[in-house]
Amino acid sequence: MTMLELKAVNKFFNGWQAVADVDLQVAAGELAVLIGTSGSGKSTTLKMINRLIEPDSGSIRLAGEDIRSQPPEVLRRRIGYAIQSVGLFPHWTVEQNIAAVPSLLKWPKARIRERVVELLELLHLPAAQFLARYPHQLSGGQQQRVGVARALAADPEVLLMDEPFGALDPVTRGTLQQELLRIQALSGKTIVLVTHDIDEALLLGQRIVLMDKGRVVQQGSAQDFLLHPASDFVRDFVGQSDVGVRLLGLDTVASRMRPLQPVSGEPIAASATLREALSAFVARRVSSLPVIDAQGQPAGVLHFADLLPVAA
């Protein structure tokens, strides 16, 4: 089922075309990533979905319904929205911030409280500790967690995220990217995320949409981008010299390991990416690694040669 459908969407700012003839379909439960350099039109495209920016032509449908068929405020309450600078209300507590949209929707108080606590647990922020805090008492990563919780609060049909992890340090960003994958797997939410970071796009995007000068240049899976770039621009964007390493980043150790005799040495987790395995091979100067599963039990072995895909 198509959750979100953009058809021939155009947007001009003072005669300059920011978005040109964009067609886009996002299936229900899909995580789509809009990627591009700054000025490519990716953020503008995102903001047209919740009508923070109105398109000059074309149509946008949410769950089959034209988004102009209802007032923008009503539409926006159906769509979660998280941005890079978070924008938590500084004069409200964490609880009030997360409760913002449910309060706008006039949920009963008890149900709001229940939902807030549930979301805080989902994002690993102990409710007892965080409910009454103010935004300035939180770290950057915690603020963005609250921001994501606020976007999810009213159980929206779609979640829009505008470079949500762009301002975070690499470690926190990595953690939150994993959390997002977990939440998406858990809730099956349709998510559209904007980024300029190709590694983030490859990691998160089930569908990646590369934009340049307002146009969609290529869309498809991470594999498509790495193995079949549509143009030199795409090839440059995904980083020609790193394509092999990035391909390894798409698969896990579990997909290539052999259920064989255990070997000695420091083990690697079955859930690690092949990219991490490559790093381990080189750093430890070994040609085979023992693999353990999530419970820490020996699961098999990975040889250096296994990194090469079997010729299809």
């Binding site: 923070l52 009503v74 921001g147």
Partner: peptide
């Protein structure tokens, strides 16, 4: 922006 985006 957040206030507008959430539907206030």
């Amino acid at each position: 922006e957040a206030a507008r985006g959430m539907g206030m």
